[in-house]
Design a protein around this nucleic acid. Sequence first.
RNA 1: GGCCCCGUGGCUCAACUGUAUAGAGCAUCUGACUACGGAUCAGAAGGUUACAGGUUAGAAUCCUGUCGGGGUCACCA
Length: 596
Amino acid sequence: MNLESSIQSIVKDAVSKLYALEVELAQIQIQKTRKDFKGDLTVVTFPFVKAAKKSPEATGQEIGEYLQANNGLITGFNVIKGFLNLNISKNYWLQLLNKIRSADNFGYNMDGDCEIMMVEYSSPNTNKPLHLGHIRNNLLGYSIAQIQQANGWKVVKTNIVNDRGIHICKSMLAWKLFGNGETPESSGLKGDHLVGKYYVEFDKAYKAEVKALIEKGMTEDDAKKSAPLIQQAQQMLVAWENHDPEVYALWEMMNGWVYAGFDETYKQLGVDFDKIYYESRTYLDGKAKVEEGLRNGVFYKREDGSVWADLTADGLDEKLLLRADGTSVYMTQDIGTAALRYNEYDIKKMVYVVGNEQNYHFQVLALLLDKLGFEWGKDLVHFSYGMVELPEGKMKSREGTVVDADDLISEMIDTACETARELGKLDQSSEEEIEKIARMVGLGALKYFILKVDPKKNMTFNPKESIDFNGNTGPFIQYTHARIKSVLRKVDELNIATDVPVTENLPLSDKESNLVQLLSLFPAIVREAGQEFSPAVIANYIYELVKEYNQFYHDFSILREENPELKYFRIVLSAAIADAIKKGMYLLGIDVPERM
RNA sequence: GGCCCCGUGGCUCAACUGUAUAGAGCAUCUGACUACGGAUCAGAAGGUUACAGGUUAGAAUCCUGUCGGGGUCACCA
């Protein structure tokens, strides 16, 4: 039983004996005492004042006296308004630190039954390079996989690549028409950027055609449909579906360039996948599954031959699943991919990391999968995250306001490198080491910046101001870790044994016991982050821990402390905190350096 | 228009399973290295939590309405 629940039950006894009031344990609020008040834990006494028929202060006083008499760990208390602040014995915190140290993998809750959770994230189209929006997706997806793993799930990270469709044909067509055989090798351009370039070329040429047609008197709608380029692209899609050898070869070659480009970006970003699905191979399964649903009467066919799902009974609309010509739509493909995954893995929980503009889509998908008999369909998690906006609004590829992923990553690393040199931090390090650290710090800044924000919310990203390295940032946390490691290296040189428990009856300051208390919350935070699907919960916790530690570090000496046992306690505390920082950042997909 | 989400100091974010003086960081101003790492620490200034009602002992948080912003309502993915 932990301290909080034992206090809860004593409070229950107290109000029962003192005021003949029976309350549920869960209703008794115990919280960490707020910063500006004296104490470790706080009991909220307002719910009891009515029964007590006394002022909140008097009630708090009475309950406080009862608690102190009945729990040896409570060494004192004070009452402010209706808040009963309890002081907990310093020895309790010392013992707790020993427990934390000896805990097996402290912070991670690996006692689950290890069932499979599949996390789908990234899911790019193969017609243009990744941008800032994908970065948020990738970081969230990777981090949530790490977090769920730390909560006892066996996580399978997966990616569904949108490698077919009209958008790919546009790039292909433009390359064929204007490319002059340009390749990544011949131009030195990264594959995905090269293909993206032709996607833009297509758009330009297409718009020019449309404009010309409108000037000849055509309506805009007609012009858009009858422009030669779009018609050619559509023909190309049909040819692709019929496996026309020439088109297929072109498609394979250009997709190959894009994959190589994406792999590079993923590697830079430090994310990976256990299993990659390609839409070009799953869309046919979707059709099969829909036809099965049609036979079972789950879906129905209209006169023109198109297949629909009627969700009006569930408060939604009717949804198209197969076009009249038998070709599939987005939803069909998601059903197909689901079917394939369901056959390949014993999935207990399916998580889709997809932007919140698709909330409706996933609401529908959950219903459809359920109707089709997928056990996890109804409970699928749409990990819906907000958009990344620029100060001037949404990113728009047409207006060239898209922040490219590769550019951003390398800028971050460059900035980290410059900053390190300016500060003269790494004068003794080799070039290779500097590069390695700059990468960690630059990426750490980017990742933390994005992950510290509640994923559900839209966020603003200002590329000009770039990302700070001071304050509530990744580097701030990394710095603290490096600093502790530096102290620990000295400890090592001094040959201080660090494998024995800390002793009791030390004159701990409130700052120190508070740090132990904060540290002890780590496992609960990891659990909460898993339940809430929120890396931000971990990011904010680590920040708080680090901030507290830095204050301690500033105000107290570690190695110069004269009392050897207290000195040892501080070493152990620092090491435990460095460990928690590292583990927490690991869950965010952020590396922490030994020095920086 | 229907449905969904959001509105917190100049800026970026916390707190949103109700509870103390609404917390941080950036930017601004002022301090702290003969110290274990100054990418740090301390302090100042800056908010009637969009607005108006309601529920409550207690509301940024819950309810209703208004205003403002975003998303979605495709035989695009």
